[in-house]
Amino acid sequence: MKIGYNWIDIIQDYLLPPTCILCGNTGFASRDLCYACYIHLLRNNPCCYRCGESFEIETEMPCGRCQNQTPAYDRTYAPFTHQGAMRHLITSLKFHAQYKNARLLGQLLAEHVKTTAEMPDRIMPVPLHKARYRQRGFNQSLEIARTVARELQLPLDLESCRRHRNTPHQTDLPAKQRRKNLKNAFSLVKPIQEGHIAIIDDVMTTGSTVNELATLLKKAGVGRVDVWACARA
Rank of each mutant, 00 (worst) to 15 (best):
D9E: 14
D13P: 01
C20L: 07
C23D: 05
G27F: 15
C34E: 12
Y38V: 08
H40C: 13
N45R: 11
C51I: 01
E58N: 11
M61Q: 15
P71W: 08
Y73N: 02
T76Q: 00
P79R: 10
F80M: 02
T81M: 10
A85Y: 14
M86Q: 10
T91P: 00
L93Q: 00
F95A: 08
Q98I: 12
Y99V: 11
Y99C: 07
R103V: 04
L104Y: 03
L104Q: 03
V113P: 05
T115K: 09
E118W: 00
R122W: 13
M124N: 08
P125W: 07
L128C: 12
R136F: 03
N139C: 10
L142K: 02
E143V: 01
R146W: 08
R150N: 13
Q153K: 09
P155G: 11
R163L: 11
D172S: 09
P174H: 03
K176F: 03
N184P: 03
A185G: 02
P191S: 05
P191E: 05
P191R: 02
I192G: 04
G195C: 08
D202N: 11
M204Q: 08
T205E: 06
S208Y: 04
T209L: 01
N211P: 07
L216H: 13
L216Q: 13
K219I: 11
G221Q: 04
G221W: 04
R224E: 08
V225E: 03
V227C: 09
A229W: 10
C230A: 08
R232S: 11
